[in-house]
Design a protein around this nucleic acid. Sequence first.
RNA 1: GGAGAGGUGGCCGAGUGGUUGAAGGCAGCUGCCUGCUAAGCAGUUGUAGGGGUAAACUCUACCGAGGGUUCGAAUCCCUCCCUCUCCGCCA
Length: 425
Amino acid sequence: MLDIRHLRENLEEVEKRLATRCESTNLADFKVLDEERRGLLKEVEKLKERRNKISDEIGGLKREGQDVSNLLIETKSLATRIKELDGMVSEKKDALRRLMLTTPNLPHPSVPTGMDSSENVELRTWGEIRDFTFEPKEHSEIGSHLGIIDLERAGKIAGARFALYMGAGAAMERGLMNLMLDLHTSEDRYIELLPPFMVHRECMLGTGQLPKFEEDLFKIEGWEHFLIPTAEVPVTNIHREEIIREEDLPLSYTAYTPCFRKEAGSHGKDVKGLIRQHQFNKVELVKFTTPDTSYDELEKLTADAERVLQVLGLPYRVVTLCTGDLGFAAAKTYDLEVWVPSQGKYREISSCSNFDDFQARRANIRYRPRGGGKPRFVHTLNGSGLAVGRTVVAILENYQQEDGSVLIPDALRKYMRGMEKIGKD
RNA sequence: GGAGAGGUGGCCGAGUGGUUGAAGGCAGCUGCCUGCUAAGCAGUUGUAGGGGUAAACUCUACCGAGGGUUCGAAUCCCUCCCUCUCCGCCA
């Protein structure tokens, strides 16, 4: 959510910056609603002041045993009018809140302007793209050939866009999760969490999935709970409605969770294989910082996610998302894209964002400045470190051998009982 | 699932219809005192939204959430949420 005062005072500038997202926003209504609301508020507060004064008087007079009936006449009609106006105020307030909740975040000034993903800007690349002496196979083919990924049986159990890992495949997925968590928690960089995989509505509002993107979420029938689409949701919300001491910032958390997404509207995209699933595993990084350090922390967080790819020896590049490709709540995002040989291109494996105070304002997460003073909103950040299924994709494809086997990256071996290679048996 | 208890400010905790934004304590801050520390004394400290060029100031709201009763609600009524204890069930 944007700062309502800032919005009120800089409406045109805000509109201009939001327009770079290439999404329609409806700020014309804002001005009207805001003014109507404040007008009504002024009126009703005046009446309330009067009512409170009279009520005080009545109290005093009654104690002295005096008659108050003529005061009751005025105050009774006041009460009716107040009720009426209160209703109108809350209508305006609700409409305003709905508008605010569906308005996306302002892109940071450093974000390149562009229409869509084609205008994202490559920042740097890492690692050598392997020169294959044979035609590299696609990961699901490698996986099914080796008997470690069975998408057909997964379909039998749960349908399309689900996966069944077996044997060394399951071990690789689990090993990667452990490797990532160990890496992030080493030297106390991140505190490890294991949160609930379901959350209630307020959490989804807090991080921005709701009210706008309900169709992307799985809701539990008969409950007010949703399956989390990312650990960002439960982890960011652990400090909802809290005031953190500045001395305790930045707070850094890492958590493994499965993620559940409907992937509505992505029919036909990545239908083959593990790239786009309704359920996938991810290790997430989340930070809470002060406003003046959040962009430094974004760099660090991105570097922490990159480290996983480096440790695994997977070539990747870092891109800055342009304004048109930026997510609803993000002010700035770096995507990490890993090299996928079968497609001959880089594919997203991590997305690292600074949300400024957008989520903090929704979720009411604040900090008390050093030495006292009014609480201020924190900045929240998060990034994947990494999407585990896509990491498996990258390993299978980049480490595949001509005979159909797959070498296991050095760093991962100790997480797979020392296995060096996955072959047929 | 059954029975009971409870949710009050940064924390603990009083408060069953009017002078309570809320006693008291802790913690914080500011002074005084003090060789230092500790202690002591006095004062002070919530959040949000309006009004005000800003400060001062001022108004409104907030005692888990939402409704209701009333001239007036932390206090009475209803619904919901959460926590705790006991019993049952269960990985």
